[in-house]
Design a protein around this nucleic acid. Structure first.
Lengths: 334, 334
DNA sequence: TTGAAAGCGTTACCAT
DNA sequence: ATGGTAACGCTTTCAA
């Protein structure tokens, strides 16, 4: 690994027999003399010159980099976002930096603070939860930020959100239409933003369908497979009349499917099941799982587009975009 | 978004009443005078100074950034790698840049070439396939590179690999031990590196188990759910005596499970099934899918560690690490 | 159109 | 130990 020093713009200038300013201009398309351009390009090839983006950044004050910060890239929703964010940014010449904060709020605030180091031109942030310190930090970031997730109305930052409340309601209405009368709900923790919203949506769905609320048919657990399975088994054992179950995410719903199988109940014959997030799990499960898509991919794309607009100099007031949920009906509720 | 100019080291120096060199030294721990350090820190706080990493990079010639390039972060194996690479790098103060090349070899070579721009200190690369141009590019990269995947022996680059050949053999031996005699194999394309290696492993597993080869029990298709399902249905219909199926990855194996269900065959009673890669799909499928882990997470971690060692100045000869596969037996083959 | 020169915000050398 | 100053590699005025 002999670290031979890379050629600089000076070498190119010397070889081409012109000044460094001319090289810079030729390379950046700021010259009209075709002859000059040709000479410079020849010299560039000869010495194998590649501009230093670091030096360019120092001078131009932008880095061509954008950061995406979320809890854990292993989460299917965030993964879908990244998959759309990356090409959207790359098409505009930006590189993507990944910050997994690992459920650490301090780390998340650290990312916000580190923006002052100016190593990126912008940030897409999925906060775990929005504390006062978040709000304060968001009010005075060094670079534009787009937040994916819920945000207080008075925080002047571009914002893209899902509507998991409406999403849960969609699912309940669908189940009711299909004939379900005793619909159970396995939720995540009630003190999380999605847990709360989905619970509210569940209740509003019942109301819309003219079905009574029954707290016995609701469980709060973790957004995980095993938790969902345990909760479902317990609930279904105690309430054999349940004819449909909504899982607050696909993992929980997968747990529900397993619990039903353990109990010898047929899906969707005896019990219909719907999940949320519409992850890849849904399509390959047995039976294929109906699931509410919260539009993760769209949210990612839209966030990237909003950010690109800001970086383009757009200084319109902050935007708030809500991506509507949609229900993907598969066999588990058909 | 009033872009107030950020304070520089000069402001700090002025406020502290010292020279910029002293500020730099104090901040980087290159001064012993406690008084100076205190004054500088006070000034830093007063003006809200944060060093510019870009200027630092220009001067110090390293960026604190490392890139990870692969085909598609949506692929479970790569995802597992990222999840371990990120924290490993972050603990050493490096930021992670993500390049999804989207199965585009040109794009992959572009990443390699772009290293000369020196926007990163190193690269972890998972090549789709290693062409002559790859080899040439890898011989003279601007920064250290670690390759995850197969690599010709004479390419002087740190290399971490899985052993999917041995992995496939493990699976076959396990199935044979469990009593299977007619073992089918649904592979990916034979002209891909993993497709080839897994096929070889499958055959060597048969040989080790003293089972005859039967080309009729092998299909080459795509590494996808639907492809696996179709191929399995066709194969199993024509060969009802098959008593075990190895899928070349978990998606294919999931397809096999579905095909078997379509045909009314019990798993594992009538037919045992094993997948490869041991993705999250395996644990939540029904029945839970036995799968060969190729150690993606470990490969990611090891690659990151190798790279960090290089960046630390280690100039030992390139290393070649092979991560052994392991079989995770679940109900589908028990 | 071209070249000289002044930064961009640091670090590190060299005197003091 | 501290301060002045020269880089680092580029872009962009400003004159010619």
């Amino acid at each position: 690994m002999t670290q031979r020093r890379r050629p600089t713009i000076h070498e190119v200038a010397r070889v081409a027999g012109v000044s460094i300013s001319s090289v810079s201009r030729a390379l950046n398309g700021n010259t009209s003399n075709a002859d000059m351009v040709a000479r410079v390009n020849a010299a560039v090839r000869e010495v194998g010159y590649v501009p230093s983006v670091v030096a360019q950044s120092l001078k131009t004050r932008h880095t061509g980099q954008i950061a995406f910060a979320m809890e854990d890239i292993g989460n299917a929703a965030y993964l879908e976002m990244v998959r759309r964010i990356q090409p959207t940014l790359r098409d505009e010449g930006y590189r993507l930096l990944l910050h997994s904060t690992g459920a650490d709020v301090e780390d998340e605030l650290g990312v916000l603070a580190s923006l002052s180091q100016n190593y990126v031109d912008g940030l897409i942030l999925c906060p775990l939860r929005v504390t006062d310190r978040h709000v304060e930090a968001l009010r005075q970031t060094a670079v534009p930020v787009v937040v994916i997730g819920l945000l207080p109305d008075d925080v002047p930052v571009d914002n893209v959100r899902a509507d998991s409340r409406v999403g849960a309601r969609l699912a309940v209405e669908h189940l009711a239409e299909a004939g379900a009368r005793r619909i159970a709900f396995i939720d995540g923790p009630l003190d999380t933003v999605p847990g709360r919203a989905r619970y509210d949506g569940f209740r509003s769905g019942l109301a819309a369908a003219g079905l009574p609320e029954d707290d016995d048919l609701v469980r709060f657990t973790d957004f995980q497979f095993d938790a969902g399975r345990r909760a479902a088994r317990e609930l279904l054992t105690g309430h054999p009349d349940v004819d449909a179950v909504l899982g607050a995410n696909d993992l929980i719903a997968m747990g529900v499917l397993h619990a039903l199988r353990d109990l010898g109940r047929d899906v969707p014959g005896d019990v219909r099941v719907v999940g949320m997030d519409d992850t890849p799990l849904a399509a390959t499960s047995f039976p294929p799982l109906s699931s509410v898509s919260l539009g993760s991919a769209d949210r990612g794309r839209i966030a990237a587009e909003l950010l690109l607009r800001r970086l383009d100099g757009d200084d319109a007031p902050p935007e708030r975009v809500t991506v509507p949920p949609s229900l993907n009906v598969r066999e588990s509720s058909r």
